[in-house]
Design a binder for these strands. Structure first.
Lengths: 154, 154
DNA sequence: ACATATTCCGATTGTAATAGTAGGAATTAA
DNA sequence: TTAATTCCTACTATTACAATCGGAATATGT
């Protein structure tokens, strides 16, 4: 039961945009890619989803880039994850009750719902601002920064 | 972020064993298969894991079968799921910190840990006995029971 | 005007995890 | 000795995910 890389990359991307965009300036995906070591191509895909969810705004053109659509305090972690991978439900029967003939008699259903609630509660208790706060050792020291090759950070 | 079918089947299997084994009697996988519509072959695989985790005991031979290794009250949902799919961690870096060069500087790590804690808390708050309790509409009415074919219950 | 850096869009391919099947050995009761 | 069971290992199919690719549209700086 893993959180997909897609979701984690989306979080890292948002953190990076927040950190780089100090005074509402635009941040290019090329820059985000350099600092996160996630390929620009992949970031582009993620950006579309985040944009459609109205979490960021994108400007095309030469000095284009992205910026947050709202203050980081008002963007919840859960919103970012949902934008990246859709609603978080650990079982299908929540989205598609008709897939299971025993939904109404399923002894486990209540447990699944509670786990779901637990996950979503935590995700919506924390904002992007909290994640982006750099008050202590949130910066990767140079000696850990790879200089080339694909992303060794998972 | 779905709970695998393997884990859900393991839960259903355990519930079925609990319900069928009233006075500590053995329950054959053939019977479990009939009632759950999960293939006997697949149940066999799951049973191995549950047995290794000391949740059930298996007796070979003609009138063999499985029974709970402990009272259902003392078996937590989390134990069953862990026996089926291993420890529940939504990110790899908990199991394998060396996979990510930025573990110590990861802004998201705390969130991941909290979500993990939330999930595991719920899973260990509930016992197999609770799931197996049949006090109300936990039985699939006959009209919903498939008579042949592969498992339509997911 | 033009070159360039960017977002934007759809398609494709590669890869790993999961689901499910299969054959047959070992065990034990009827 | 037959039959029903657990037990063990391997294989195959399917699916979801990760990642790449080509190129169009857009805007900017020079």
């Amino acid at each position: 039961m893993r959180l997909s890389r897609r979701a984690r990359y989306a979080l890292r991307m948002m953190v990076e945009i927040t950190r780089q965009s100090n005074d509402g300036s635009k941040v290019s995906l090329a820059n985000v890619s350099k600092r996160t070591r996630i390929s620009r191509r992949y970031l582009e895909q993620l950006a579309i989803g985040l944009k459609n969810a109205s979490l960021i705004m994108g400007m095309s053109g030469r000095s284009g880039g992205y910026l947050l659509a709202r203050p980081a305090e008002k963007i919840k972690v859960g919103e970012i994850i949902e934008a990246a991978i859709g609603p978080v439900n650990i079982v299908e029967c929540v989205d598609h009750p008709d897939l299971c003939i025993q939904v109404d008699f399923c002894p486990c259903r209540r447990i699944y719902q509670r786990i779901n609630q637990g996950i979503n509660k935590v995700m919506n208790e924390h904002s992007l601002a909290e994640l982006s706060d750099m008050k202590k050792d949130c910066e990767i020291p140079d000696k850990y920064k790879p200089t080339s090759g694909s992303c060794p950070v998972r």
